[in-house]
Design a protein around this nucleic acid. Structure first.
Length: 454
RNA sequence: GGCCCUAUCGUCUAACGGCUAGGACACAUCCCUCUCACGGAUGAAAUCGGGGUUCGAUUCCCCGUAGGGUCACCA
Protein backbone atom coordinates (compact mmCIF):
# COMPACT_ATOMS: atom_id res chain seq x y z
CA UNK A 1 0.00 0.00 0.00
CA UNK A 2 2.77 2.42 0.88
CA UNK A 3 4.38 1.77 -2.46
CA UNK A 4 1.22 2.66 -4.33
CA UNK A 5 0.72 5.74 -2.22
CA UNK A 6 3.97 7.23 -3.32
CA UNK A 7 3.27 6.79 -7.00
CA UNK A 8 -0.15 8.17 -7.84
CA UNK A 9 -2.45 9.92 -5.46
CA UNK A 10 -5.50 10.12 -7.64
CA UNK A 11 -5.26 6.54 -8.72
CA UNK A 12 -5.06 5.43 -5.14
CA UNK A 13 -8.02 7.35 -3.95
CA UNK A 14 -10.33 5.85 -6.51
CA UNK A 15 -8.84 2.39 -6.31
CA UNK A 16 -8.90 2.47 -2.56
CA UNK A 17 -12.47 3.62 -2.30
CA UNK A 18 -13.51 0.91 -4.71
CA UNK A 19 -11.87 -1.76 -2.69
CA UNK A 20 -12.65 -0.48 0.75
CA UNK A 21 -16.28 0.41 0.18
CA UNK A 22 -18.43 -2.35 1.59
CA UNK A 23 -21.59 -2.90 -0.40
CA UNK A 24 -24.25 -5.36 0.66
CA UNK A 25 -27.65 -6.06 -0.78
CA UNK A 26 -31.02 -7.53 0.02
CA UNK A 27 -32.62 -9.00 -3.06
CA UNK A 28 -36.18 -10.14 -2.49
CA UNK A 29 -38.52 -11.21 -5.22
CA UNK A 30 -41.92 -9.54 -4.94
CA UNK A 31 -43.81 -12.81 -5.13
CA UNK A 32 -44.92 -12.73 -1.51
CA UNK A 33 -45.02 -10.50 1.52
CA UNK A 34 -41.97 -9.68 3.64
CA UNK A 35 -41.40 -12.49 6.10
CA UNK A 36 -39.21 -12.51 9.17
CA UNK A 37 -36.71 -14.70 7.36
CA UNK A 38 -36.20 -12.13 4.65
CA UNK A 39 -36.35 -9.26 7.10
CA UNK A 40 -33.60 -10.81 9.17
CA UNK A 41 -31.44 -11.29 6.08
CA UNK A 42 -32.05 -7.64 5.20
CA UNK A 43 -31.19 -6.65 8.76
CA UNK A 44 -27.85 -8.49 8.75
CA UNK A 45 -26.92 -6.92 5.42
CA UNK A 46 -27.93 -3.52 6.74
CA UNK A 47 -26.01 -3.91 9.99
CA UNK A 48 -22.90 -5.06 8.22
CA UNK A 49 -22.99 -2.24 5.69
CA UNK A 50 -23.57 0.43 8.33
CA UNK A 51 -20.93 -0.96 10.61
CA UNK A 52 -18.37 -0.69 7.86
CA UNK A 53 -19.46 2.67 6.57
CA UNK A 54 -20.68 0.99 3.40
CA UNK A 55 -23.83 0.99 1.34
CA UNK A 56 -26.89 -1.19 1.61
CA UNK A 57 -28.58 -1.86 -1.71
CA UNK A 58 -32.14 -3.01 -2.12
CA UNK A 59 -32.79 -4.90 -5.31
CA UNK A 60 -36.22 -6.06 -6.32
CA UNK A 61 -35.86 -9.28 -8.25
CA UNK A 62 -38.93 -9.12 -10.41
CA UNK A 63 -37.76 -10.91 -13.53
CA UNK A 64 -40.63 -13.36 -13.17
CA UNK A 65 -43.42 -11.23 -14.58
CA UNK A 66 -46.07 -13.83 -13.89
CA UNK A 67 -45.55 -14.02 -10.17
CA UNK A 68 -44.23 -10.58 -9.29
CA UNK A 69 -46.81 -8.18 -7.89
CA UNK A 70 -46.61 -4.50 -7.08
CA UNK A 71 -48.52 -5.03 -3.85
CA UNK A 72 -45.82 -7.40 -2.63
CA UNK A 73 -43.13 -4.91 -3.52
CA UNK A 74 -45.01 -2.31 -1.49
CA UNK A 75 -45.32 -4.71 1.41
CA UNK A 76 -41.58 -5.37 1.36
CA UNK A 77 -40.66 -1.69 1.13
CA UNK A 78 -43.09 -0.70 3.86
CA UNK A 79 -41.96 -3.50 6.12
CA UNK A 80 -38.30 -2.55 5.82
CA UNK A 81 -39.05 1.12 6.41
CA UNK A 82 -41.09 0.29 9.45
CA UNK A 83 -38.27 -1.79 10.86
CA UNK A 84 -35.86 1.07 10.32
CA UNK A 85 -33.83 -0.78 7.71
CA UNK A 86 -33.03 2.01 5.27
CA UNK A 87 -31.58 1.32 1.87
CA UNK A 88 -29.15 3.59 0.09
CA UNK A 89 -30.00 2.52 -3.43
CA UNK A 90 -33.00 0.80 -4.97
CA UNK A 91 -33.08 -1.19 -8.20
CA UNK A 92 -35.64 -3.26 -10.03
CA UNK A 93 -34.45 -6.00 -12.31
CA UNK A 94 -37.44 -5.35 -14.54
CA UNK A 95 -35.86 -1.98 -15.37
CA UNK A 96 -32.45 -3.37 -16.25
CA UNK A 97 -33.24 -5.41 -19.35
CA UNK A 98 -30.60 -3.71 -21.50
CA UNK A 99 -27.84 -4.63 -19.10
CA UNK A 100 -28.71 -8.30 -19.02
CA UNK A 101 -29.10 -8.37 -22.78
CA UNK A 102 -25.59 -7.06 -23.17
CA UNK A 103 -24.20 -9.84 -20.99
CA UNK A 104 -26.27 -12.54 -22.62
CA UNK A 105 -25.04 -11.50 -26.04
CA UNK A 106 -21.48 -11.38 -24.80
CA UNK A 107 -21.70 -14.87 -23.33
CA UNK A 108 -23.27 -16.12 -26.55
CA UNK A 109 -20.67 -14.55 -28.79
CA UNK A 110 -17.84 -15.84 -26.64
CA UNK A 111 -19.26 -19.33 -26.80
CA UNK A 112 -19.80 -19.47 -23.03
CA UNK A 113 -23.50 -19.93 -23.55
CA UNK A 114 -25.57 -21.25 -26.39
CA UNK A 115 -29.10 -21.36 -27.71
CA UNK A 116 -30.55 -24.75 -27.04
CA UNK A 117 -33.51 -26.30 -28.78
CA UNK A 118 -35.79 -27.91 -26.24
CA UNK A 119 -38.03 -30.90 -26.56
CA UNK A 120 -39.64 -30.43 -23.17
CA UNK A 121 -40.74 -27.37 -21.23
CA UNK A 122 -42.52 -24.15 -22.03
CA UNK A 123 -40.33 -22.64 -24.74
CA UNK A 124 -38.94 -24.28 -27.82
CA UNK A 125 -35.56 -22.72 -27.22
CA UNK A 126 -33.65 -21.39 -24.23
CA UNK A 127 -30.17 -20.13 -23.50
CA UNK A 128 -27.97 -22.52 -21.64
CA UNK A 129 -24.68 -21.93 -19.90
CA UNK A 130 -21.83 -24.03 -21.16
CA UNK A 131 -20.72 -25.70 -17.96
CA UNK A 132 -16.94 -26.08 -17.78
CA UNK A 133 -17.53 -28.90 -15.28
CA UNK A 134 -15.19 -27.69 -12.59
CA UNK A 135 -14.83 -28.35 -8.94
CA UNK A 136 -15.44 -25.01 -7.25
CA UNK A 137 -14.54 -23.99 -3.77
CA UNK A 138 -15.39 -20.97 -1.71
CA UNK A 139 -14.71 -19.83 1.76
CA UNK A 140 -17.92 -18.98 3.54
CA UNK A 141 -17.50 -16.41 6.30
CA UNK A 142 -19.72 -18.44 8.57
CA UNK A 143 -19.18 -22.03 7.50
CA UNK A 144 -15.64 -22.10 6.25
CA UNK A 145 -14.66 -23.95 3.11
CA UNK A 146 -17.41 -25.43 0.96
CA UNK A 147 -16.64 -27.45 -2.15
CA UNK A 148 -18.87 -28.54 -5.01
CA UNK A 149 -18.47 -30.55 -8.13
CA UNK A 150 -20.43 -28.59 -10.74
CA UNK A 151 -20.53 -31.44 -13.23
CA UNK A 152 -23.86 -32.60 -11.92
CA UNK A 153 -25.34 -29.19 -12.68
CA UNK A 154 -25.12 -29.76 -16.41
CA UNK A 155 -25.61 -26.94 -18.87
CA UNK A 156 -28.17 -25.09 -16.81
CA UNK A 157 -30.55 -22.54 -18.28
CA UNK A 158 -29.57 -18.91 -17.68
CA UNK A 159 -32.09 -17.11 -19.87
CA UNK A 160 -35.25 -17.79 -21.77
CA UNK A 161 -34.00 -15.61 -24.62
CA UNK A 162 -31.76 -12.59 -25.08
CA UNK A 163 -34.33 -10.35 -23.45
CA UNK A 164 -35.24 -12.42 -20.43
CA UNK A 165 -32.53 -13.54 -18.03
CA UNK A 166 -33.26 -16.04 -15.31
CA UNK A 167 -32.38 -15.80 -11.64
CA UNK A 168 -28.77 -16.99 -11.61
CA UNK A 169 -27.66 -14.77 -14.45
CA UNK A 170 -29.51 -11.70 -13.22
CA UNK A 171 -28.10 -12.10 -9.72
CA UNK A 172 -24.52 -12.44 -10.85
CA UNK A 173 -24.72 -9.61 -13.36
CA UNK A 174 -26.33 -7.31 -10.82
CA UNK A 175 -23.99 -8.13 -7.99
CA UNK A 176 -21.12 -7.42 -10.36
CA UNK A 177 -22.58 -4.23 -11.83
CA UNK A 178 -23.59 -2.95 -8.42
CA UNK A 179 -20.21 -3.65 -6.92
CA UNK A 180 -21.56 -5.91 -4.20
CA UNK A 181 -18.70 -6.98 -1.97
CA UNK A 182 -20.49 -9.16 0.59
CA UNK A 183 -23.34 -11.50 -0.09
CA UNK A 184 -25.16 -12.25 3.14
CA UNK A 185 -28.10 -14.53 2.45
CA UNK A 186 -29.98 -17.54 3.70
CA UNK A 187 -28.42 -20.96 3.94
CA UNK A 188 -30.91 -22.18 1.35
CA UNK A 189 -28.73 -20.39 -1.20
CA UNK A 190 -25.62 -22.42 -0.53
CA UNK A 191 -26.44 -24.80 -3.33
CA UNK A 192 -26.97 -21.88 -5.71
CA UNK A 193 -23.50 -20.56 -5.08
CA UNK A 194 -21.52 -22.88 -7.39
CA UNK A 195 -23.70 -22.00 -10.41
CA UNK A 196 -23.27 -18.36 -9.66
CA UNK A 197 -19.54 -18.68 -9.28
CA UNK A 198 -19.33 -20.31 -12.69
CA UNK A 199 -21.19 -17.38 -14.20
CA UNK A 200 -18.96 -14.94 -12.34
CA UNK A 201 -15.94 -16.49 -14.00
CA UNK A 202 -17.63 -16.33 -17.37
CA UNK A 203 -18.42 -12.61 -17.18
CA UNK A 204 -15.18 -11.67 -15.46
CA UNK A 205 -16.65 -10.78 -12.12
CA UNK A 206 -14.56 -10.93 -8.95
CA UNK A 207 -15.76 -13.16 -6.14
CA UNK A 208 -17.76 -11.43 -3.46
CA UNK A 209 -17.42 -12.58 0.12
CA UNK A 210 -20.13 -15.09 0.97
CA UNK A 211 -21.85 -15.46 4.32
CA UNK A 212 -24.67 -17.96 4.43
CA UNK A 213 -26.73 -17.41 7.52
CA UNK A 214 -28.76 -20.12 9.23
CA UNK A 215 -32.44 -20.41 8.47
CA UNK A 216 -35.24 -19.36 10.74
CA UNK A 217 -37.25 -22.44 11.60
CA UNK A 218 -40.83 -23.07 12.60
CA UNK A 219 -41.70 -25.06 15.71
CA UNK A 220 -41.35 -28.25 13.64
CA UNK A 221 -37.79 -27.22 12.71
CA UNK A 222 -38.54 -26.80 9.02
CA UNK A 223 -37.90 -23.58 7.10
CA UNK A 224 -40.25 -20.91 8.36
CA UNK A 225 -43.14 -20.27 5.99
CA UNK A 226 -46.71 -19.07 5.83
CA UNK A 227 -48.04 -22.31 7.20
CA UNK A 228 -46.25 -21.61 10.48
CA UNK A 229 -48.66 -18.76 11.11
CA UNK A 230 -47.96 -15.09 11.43
CA UNK A 231 -44.51 -14.86 9.91
CA UNK A 232 -45.27 -11.75 7.90
CA UNK A 233 -43.59 -8.59 9.15
CA UNK A 234 -46.59 -6.43 8.49
CA UNK A 235 -48.75 -8.87 10.34
CA UNK A 236 -46.56 -8.47 13.41
CA UNK A 237 -46.89 -4.76 12.95
CA UNK A 238 -50.68 -4.99 12.89
CA UNK A 239 -50.71 -7.27 15.90
CA UNK A 240 -48.98 -4.64 17.97
CA UNK A 241 -45.31 -5.55 17.94
CA UNK A 242 -42.78 -2.74 18.04
CA UNK A 243 -40.19 -2.52 15.29
CA UNK A 244 -37.43 -2.13 17.89
CA UNK A 245 -38.48 -5.38 19.53
CA UNK A 246 -38.76 -7.28 16.27
CA UNK A 247 -35.34 -6.04 15.15
CA UNK A 248 -33.82 -6.97 18.51
CA UNK A 249 -35.46 -10.36 18.32
CA UNK A 250 -34.45 -11.11 14.74
CA UNK A 251 -30.86 -10.06 15.39
CA UNK A 252 -30.65 -12.63 18.16
CA UNK A 253 -31.84 -15.41 15.91
CA UNK A 254 -28.46 -16.78 14.97
CA UNK A 255 -26.39 -14.02 16.44
CA UNK A 256 -25.51 -12.81 19.92
CA UNK A 257 -23.03 -10.34 21.37
CA UNK A 258 -21.09 -13.01 23.25
CA UNK A 259 -22.02 -11.72 26.67
CA UNK A 260 -25.25 -11.71 28.60
CA UNK A 261 -26.89 -8.52 27.37
CA UNK A 262 -30.27 -9.02 25.74
CA UNK A 263 -31.64 -5.61 24.82
CA UNK A 264 -30.07 -3.94 21.82
CA UNK A 265 -31.09 -0.88 19.86
CA UNK A 266 -30.35 -0.67 16.15
CA UNK A 267 -27.37 1.57 16.83
CA UNK A 268 -25.96 -0.85 19.35
CA UNK A 269 -26.46 -3.70 16.91
CA UNK A 270 -24.58 -1.78 14.25
CA UNK A 271 -21.73 -1.34 16.68
CA UNK A 272 -21.56 -4.91 17.91
CA UNK A 273 -22.72 -7.03 15.00
CA UNK A 274 -20.24 -9.50 13.64
CA UNK A 275 -20.47 -12.12 10.91
CA UNK A 276 -17.97 -14.24 12.81
CA UNK A 277 -20.33 -14.63 15.72
CA UNK A 278 -23.20 -15.94 13.65
CA UNK A 279 -24.47 -19.37 14.56
CA UNK A 280 -24.32 -22.21 12.06
CA UNK A 281 -27.44 -24.09 13.02
CA UNK A 282 -30.99 -23.00 12.27
CA UNK A 283 -32.95 -21.14 14.92
CA UNK A 284 -36.53 -21.85 15.89
CA UNK A 285 -38.75 -18.79 15.93
CA UNK A 286 -39.83 -18.50 19.53
CA UNK A 287 -42.91 -16.33 19.97
CA UNK A 288 -42.67 -16.39 23.78
CA UNK A 289 -39.34 -14.70 23.58
CA UNK A 290 -40.56 -12.13 21.07
CA UNK A 291 -43.45 -11.35 23.40
CA UNK A 292 -41.11 -10.87 26.31
CA UNK A 293 -38.85 -8.56 24.33
CA UNK A 294 -41.84 -6.61 23.09
CA UNK A 295 -43.09 -6.22 26.65
CA UNK A 296 -39.68 -4.90 27.69
CA UNK A 297 -39.83 -2.20 25.03
CA UNK A 298 -43.40 -1.37 26.00
CA UNK A 299 -42.40 -0.96 29.65
CA UNK A 300 -39.57 1.38 28.83
CA UNK A 301 -41.21 3.49 26.16
CA UNK A 302 -42.11 7.14 26.59
CA UNK A 303 -45.70 7.17 27.84
CA UNK A 304 -46.93 9.76 25.34
CA UNK A 305 -45.52 7.82 22.44
CA UNK A 306 -46.92 4.58 23.81
CA UNK A 307 -50.34 6.13 24.21
CA UNK A 308 -50.35 7.25 20.58
CA UNK A 309 -49.36 3.79 19.42
CA UNK A 310 -52.07 2.15 21.51
CA UNK A 311 -54.81 4.54 20.46
CA UNK A 312 -55.94 2.67 17.33
CA UNK A 313 -56.27 -0.58 19.25
CA UNK A 314 -58.32 1.11 21.96
CA UNK A 315 -60.51 3.36 19.86
CA UNK A 316 -61.54 0.55 17.56
CA UNK A 317 -63.44 -0.82 20.58
CA UNK A 318 -64.03 2.35 22.54
CA UNK A 319 -64.37 5.28 20.13
CA UNK A 320 -64.63 7.70 23.06
CA UNK A 321 -60.97 7.10 23.89
CA UNK A 322 -59.83 9.24 21.00
CA UNK A 323 -61.15 12.42 22.58
CA UNK A 324 -59.98 11.59 26.12
CA UNK A 325 -56.23 11.59 25.70
CA UNK A 326 -55.34 12.29 29.34
CA UNK A 327 -57.56 9.52 30.55
CA UNK A 328 -56.22 7.14 27.95
CA UNK A 329 -52.68 7.98 28.98
CA UNK A 330 -53.46 6.98 32.57
CA UNK A 331 -55.12 3.79 31.41
CA UNK A 332 -52.11 2.87 29.31
CA UNK A 333 -49.78 3.66 32.19
CA UNK A 334 -51.67 1.12 34.28
CA UNK A 335 -51.96 -1.33 31.44
CA UNK A 336 -48.42 -1.29 30.10
CA UNK A 337 -46.94 -3.65 32.67
CA UNK A 338 -49.40 -6.35 31.68
CA UNK A 339 -49.11 -5.95 27.92
CA UNK A 340 -47.06 -8.06 25.57
CA UNK A 341 -48.37 -6.30 22.49
CA UNK A 342 -49.95 -2.94 21.72
CA UNK A 343 -53.10 -4.75 20.65
CA UNK A 344 -53.61 -5.87 24.24
CA UNK A 345 -54.06 -2.25 25.24
CA UNK A 346 -57.65 -2.60 24.07
CA UNK A 347 -58.36 -5.69 26.14
CA UNK A 348 -60.03 -5.73 29.57
CA UNK A 349 -60.39 -1.98 29.83
CA UNK A 350 -64.11 -1.75 29.11
CA UNK A 351 -64.88 -0.71 32.68
CA UNK A 352 -63.09 2.58 32.10
CA UNK A 353 -65.62 3.52 29.45
CA UNK A 354 -68.85 1.90 30.51
CA UNK A 355 -70.45 0.55 33.66
CA UNK A 356 -69.34 -3.00 34.33
CA UNK A 357 -71.88 -5.79 34.66
CA UNK A 358 -71.29 -8.42 37.32
CA UNK A 359 -73.08 -10.72 39.75
CA UNK A 360 -73.24 -9.42 43.30
CA UNK A 361 -71.57 -12.59 44.60
CA UNK A 362 -68.43 -11.48 42.88
CA UNK A 363 -68.13 -8.71 45.49
CA UNK A 364 -67.40 -11.37 48.13
CA UNK A 365 -63.76 -11.72 49.10
CA UNK A 366 -62.40 -15.26 49.38
CA UNK A 367 -64.14 -17.05 52.22
CA UNK A 368 -66.46 -14.21 53.06
CA UNK A 369 -70.06 -15.42 53.03
CA UNK A 370 -71.79 -12.41 54.45
CA UNK A 371 -72.99 -9.96 51.81
CA UNK A 372 -74.12 -7.61 54.54
CA UNK A 373 -70.61 -7.25 55.85
CA UNK A 374 -69.42 -6.48 52.35
CA UNK A 375 -72.21 -3.96 52.00
CA UNK A 376 -71.10 -2.32 55.19
CA UNK A 377 -67.53 -2.02 53.89
CA UNK A 378 -68.69 -0.45 50.66
CA UNK A 379 -70.82 2.03 52.55
CA UNK A 380 -67.88 2.93 54.72
CA UNK A 381 -65.63 3.45 51.67
CA UNK A 382 -68.28 5.74 50.19
CA UNK A 383 -68.39 7.71 53.37
CA UNK A 384 -64.60 8.00 53.57
CA UNK A 385 -64.30 9.15 49.98
CA UNK A 386 -67.20 11.57 50.14
CA UNK A 387 -65.07 14.13 51.94
CA UNK A 388 -62.24 13.90 49.45
CA UNK A 389 -62.18 16.91 47.19
CA UNK A 390 -62.77 16.22 43.52
CA UNK A 391 -59.48 17.89 42.63
CA UNK A 392 -57.60 15.73 45.10
CA UNK A 393 -59.16 12.53 43.91
CA UNK A 394 -55.86 10.87 43.20
CA UNK A 395 -54.61 7.39 43.74
CA UNK A 396 -52.42 8.12 46.74
CA UNK A 397 -55.05 10.28 48.45
CA UNK A 398 -57.74 7.71 47.88
CA UNK A 399 -55.49 5.06 49.32
CA UNK A 400 -54.75 7.20 52.38
CA UNK A 401 -58.45 7.81 52.94
CA UNK A 402 -59.35 4.13 52.89
CA UNK A 403 -56.23 2.45 54.17
CA UNK A 404 -56.72 2.58 57.94
CA UNK A 405 -60.20 1.17 57.65
CA UNK A 406 -58.96 -1.58 55.34
CA UNK A 407 -56.17 -2.49 57.73
CA UNK A 408 -58.61 -2.67 60.56
CA UNK A 409 -61.17 -4.81 58.76
CA UNK A 410 -58.72 -6.91 56.78
CA UNK A 411 -57.49 -5.53 53.49
CA UNK A 412 -59.07 -8.18 51.33
CA UNK A 413 -62.45 -7.74 52.94
CA UNK A 414 -62.46 -4.09 52.02
CA UNK A 415 -60.30 -3.72 48.94
CA UNK A 416 -61.63 -6.64 46.98
CA UNK A 417 -65.24 -5.47 46.91
CA UNK A 418 -64.05 -1.90 46.35
CA UNK A 419 -62.15 -3.02 43.26
CA UNK A 420 -64.91 -5.26 41.95
CA UNK A 421 -67.44 -2.48 42.42
CA UNK A 422 -65.33 -0.33 40.11
CA UNK A 423 -64.18 -2.89 37.56
CA UNK A 424 -66.56 -5.82 37.77
CA UNK A 425 -63.50 -8.03 37.28
CA UNK A 426 -61.73 -10.59 39.41
CA UNK A 427 -58.43 -9.51 37.91
CA UNK A 428 -57.57 -5.89 37.35
CA UNK A 429 -55.27 -3.07 38.48
CA UNK A 430 -55.67 -1.80 42.04
CA UNK A 431 -58.84 0.09 43.02
CA UNK A 432 -57.05 3.35 43.90
CA UNK A 433 -55.59 3.88 40.46
CA UNK A 434 -58.84 2.85 38.83
CA UNK A 435 -60.82 5.25 41.03
CA UNK A 436 -58.55 8.11 40.08
CA UNK A 437 -59.07 7.48 36.39
CA UNK A 438 -62.81 7.08 36.84
CA UNK A 439 -63.03 10.33 38.80
CA UNK A 440 -64.91 11.02 41.98
CA UNK A 441 -68.38 11.20 40.50
CA UNK A 442 -68.18 7.90 38.64
CA UNK A 443 -66.43 6.18 41.53
CA UNK A 444 -69.17 7.23 43.95
CA UNK A 445 -71.83 6.15 41.46
CA UNK A 446 -70.31 2.70 41.08
CA UNK A 447 -70.00 2.24 44.83
CA UNK A 448 -73.62 3.25 45.20
CA UNK A 449 -74.64 0.84 42.51
CA UNK A 450 -72.78 -2.01 44.18
CA UNK A 451 -74.44 -1.22 47.51
CA UNK A 452 -77.86 -1.17 45.90
CA UNK A 453 -77.13 -4.46 44.18
CA UNK A 454 -76.81 -6.10 47.56
C1' G B 1 -32.41 -40.71 -3.55
C1' G B 2 -27.76 -37.33 -5.21
C1' C B 3 -25.25 -33.08 -3.47
C1' C B 4 -24.69 -29.61 0.57
C1' C B 5 -25.29 -27.79 5.61
C1' U B 6 -26.06 -28.54 10.82
C1' A B 7 -26.01 -30.83 16.01
C1' U B 8 -25.13 -27.62 24.17
C1' C B 9 -31.38 -27.36 28.79
C1' G B 10 -38.31 -27.59 25.61
C1' U B 11 -36.59 -22.77 22.83
C1' C B 12 -32.61 -18.73 21.78
C1' U B 13 -27.68 -19.30 23.18
C1' A B 14 -22.34 -18.69 26.29
C1' A B 15 -17.99 -21.45 27.34
C1' C B 16 -8.32 -19.57 24.18
C1' G B 17 -8.56 -27.87 24.50
C1' G B 18 -8.79 -27.09 31.38
C1' C B 19 -13.81 -24.53 37.20
C1' U B 20 -19.94 -27.33 40.17
C1' A B 21 -21.21 -26.40 31.45
C1' G B 22 -23.15 -19.79 32.35
C1' G B 23 -27.36 -16.49 30.82
C1' A B 24 -32.32 -15.45 28.67
C1' C B 25 -37.51 -17.05 27.37
C1' A B 26 -41.03 -20.55 28.94
C1' C B 27 -42.17 -23.70 33.35
C1' A B 28 -42.48 -24.67 38.97
C1' U B 29 -42.13 -22.90 44.08
C1' C B 30 -41.59 -18.85 47.41
C1' C B 31 -41.56 -13.44 48.67
C1' C B 32 -44.16 -8.79 47.67
C1' U B 33 -49.64 -8.37 47.41
C1' C B 34 -57.14 -7.32 47.86
C1' U B 35 -56.90 -9.90 42.49
C1' C B 36 -54.11 -9.72 37.98
C1' A B 37 -49.55 -7.95 36.45
C1' C B 38 -44.71 -5.94 37.51
C1' G B 39 -40.49 -6.82 40.53
C1' G B 40 -37.28 -10.10 43.64
C1' A B 41 -35.46 -15.09 45.15
C1' U B 42 -35.02 -20.23 44.39
C1' G B 43 -35.56 -24.72 41.52
C1' A B 44 -36.02 -28.41 37.64
C1' A B 45 -33.79 -28.66 32.78
C1' A B 46 -28.53 -29.75 28.01
C1' U B 47 -23.13 -31.17 25.55
C1' C B 48 -26.99 -37.07 19.84
C1' G B 49 -24.06 -42.14 19.77
C1' G B 50 -19.34 -44.65 18.92
C1' G B 51 -14.35 -44.40 17.99
C1' G B 52 -9.80 -41.73 17.84
C1' U B 53 -5.91 -37.32 18.97
C1' U B 54 -4.57 -35.52 23.97
C1' C B 55 -2.34 -35.48 30.66
C1' G B 56 -7.38 -33.60 29.65
C1' A B 57 -12.34 -33.11 24.94
C1' U B 58 -18.84 -29.32 24.59
C1' U B 59 -14.51 -27.73 21.81
C1' C B 60 -10.09 -31.00 17.04
C1' C B 61 -10.51 -35.60 13.45
C1' C B 62 -13.29 -39.97 11.57
C1' C B 63 -17.70 -43.06 11.32
C1' G B 64 -22.64 -43.48 12.44
C1' U B 65 -27.47 -41.26 13.73
C1' A B 66 -30.88 -37.43 13.49
C1' G B 67 -32.64 -32.90 11.53
C1' G B 68 -32.63 -29.31 7.72
C1' G B 69 -31.64 -27.20 2.80
C1' U B 70 -31.44 -27.93 -2.38
C1' C B 71 -32.03 -30.51 -6.78
C1' A B 72 -37.26 -25.43 -12.54
C1' C B 73 -37.68 -22.44 -18.84
C1' C B 74 -39.28 -19.61 -9.65
C1' A B 75 -36.38 -16.59 -6.91
Amino acid sequence: MSKAQSTNNIGIISAKSQVAQVRTRFAPSPTGVLHVGGARTALFNYLFARQNGGKFVLRIEDTDKERSKKEYEDDILNGLKWLGIEWDELYRQSERGEIYKKYIQKLLSEGKAYVSEEKEGKSKSVIRFKNPNLKVKFNDEIRGEIEFDTTELGDFVIAKDEETPLYHLAVVVDDFEMGITHIIRGEDHISNTPRQMLIQDAIGSPRPVYAHIPLILGADRSKLSKRHGAASVNEYRENGYLPEALVNFMAFLGWNPGDEREIFSMDELIKEFSLKKIQKGGAVFNTDRLNWLNSQYIKNMDIDKLTELCLPYVSSRYPAAGSQREKLKKIIELKRERMNTLAEAGEEIGYFFEQPEYEKEKLLWKNEKDLNATKKHLEKISELLKNLDENNFMSQNIKNAVWDYAEEQGRGNVLWPFRVALTGLERSPDPFSVAEILGKEETMARLKRAIEKI
